[in-house]
């Protein structure tokens, strides 16, 4: 043993070892970086630091991405059709409101006569959508929705699964039977079918609704593993020692045993986030998810589906690539975490 770096009494904990393994894993660190980058993006967009004005129509309709740009000119003059009312009278029609409207026009000249040389961009970083909104900003805004939904729903599902699993595994007996019955019922119905059924019943779109649907249906995997962990731990010496010292059931369950199951919880949380992001995209795509005024990768893919036939592929690229990169990075991170936290692996 090298006494210059570690004192003889120091024994690295599971978390020290896991961090050391994680840092050594280059691909794991890269995926952690990508995941953190996406989370930062969505936090930034949530707090309004970036992509705040994503819904401004800054470019012409379906402006192509700037890397396709060949010309030097970056703005285009869009003339808005302004029908002069005087013209109507040329056709011999009598306009009864003409006098009133002229008065209004004189009072508020800027409202009725829009500047018809409004500058609009012809090219944008990642192109523009049907209304001329930036696809890059929409993708960032979509990341916010998808990641927020995925994270919050995963936290809800993991909390439910952990508490129920702890109760079932720790107490056993009729509590275990009852909760196992719950588990069997929820796993008997295929996951997507259950989600669709709840979506049909609730019949209202909204971010909270999706979080509720995913959170209330996704707890089963965590439950099974945490229950097994508690079954294993409840008769260990340290728990019996805590009992001998007079620790209550609550203290033994959540202060003594719970920290020893954190590695399972963390990996399950990570798996759930990936699964829920995918589910949210499918739900929003089918129109059972977020409302129309909220951008998500799913609603972007929905718009992209019709645009592709017109040869407009940038919205598909934005949402599809962002989702693929995040989900790949998250999956790799989950695998790395699982390996790093596995106590059976010798460092």
């Amino acid at each position: 043993m090298n006494h210059t770096t570690t004192s003889p009494s120091f024994s690295p904990s599971l978390w020290n070892l896991a961090c050391a393994r994680l840092v050594r894993d280059k691909i794991g660190m890269l995926s952690l970086g990508i995941v953190l980058f996406f989370i930062l993006l969505s936090v930034g967009s949530f707090t309004g630091l970036i992509a705040q004005n994503w819904d401004e129509e800054i470019a012409v309709n379906y402006a192509p991405p700037s890397f396709l740009d060949t010309s030097k000119e970056h703005t285009d003059t869009v003339s808005r059709p302004v029908i002069a009312r005087q013209q109507i009278n040329l056709y011999g029609l009598h306009d009864p409101l003409s006098a009133v409207l002229n008065q209004i026009e004189l009072a508020h000249p800027q409202d009725t006569m829009p500047p018809n040389d409004e500058k609009k961009l012809t090219h944008l970083l990642l192109g523009a959508d049907k209304w001329g909104r930036s696809v890059a900003l929409k993708t960032i805004k979509g990341s916010e929705t998808s990641i927020m939904v995925g994270l919050i729903a995963a936290i809800v599902a993991t909390c439910i699964g952990t508490v129920l699993g702890a109760l079932a595994g720790y107490f056993g007996g009729w509590v275990d039977d009852l909760l196992n019955w719950f588990y069997n019922v929820f796993t008997a119905i295929p996951y997507l079918l259950l989600i669709f059924a709840i979506a049909a019943v609730l019949n209202q779109k909204g971010v909270t609704t999706i979080i509720l649907i995913l959170g209330l249906t996704g707890w089963t995997g965590v439950f099974r593993l945490i229950r097994a962990e508690y079954l294993k731990h409840r008769q260990r010496e340290y728990v019996l020692a805590a009992k001998a010292m007079g620790a209550s059931h609550y203290r033994r369950m959540f202060i003594h045993i719970l920290p020893n199951t954190f590695h399972v919880i963390l990996v399950q949380l990570s798996i759930n986030v990936v699964g829920f992001i995918k589910s949210e995209v499918i739900l929003s795509f089918l129109g059972f998810g977020v409302p129309v005024d909220v951008v998500s990768w799913g609603s972007m893919l929905n718009e992209a589906q019709n645009e592709l036939v017109l040869g407009i592929w940038w919205q598909l690229l934005g949402a599809g690539a962002a989702m693929a990169i995040l989900v790949t990075a998250f999956s790799v991170l989950t695998d790395t975490l699982r390996d790093a936290l596995d106590p059976k692996v010798v460092a």
Binding site: K278, V281, I282, F285, G298, L301, A304, Q305, L308, V309, L316, G320, M323, A324, V327, T328, S331, V332, D335
Partner: peptide, 18 residues
């Protein structure tokens, strides 16, 4: 296979159909 799993079925369908 990790990358292929991560791309949404929606993207495969939209791109493949096109």
């Amino acid at each position: 296979s990790t990358v292929m799993m991560s791309i949404s079925l929606l993207v495969y369908i939209i791109v493949g159909q096109y």
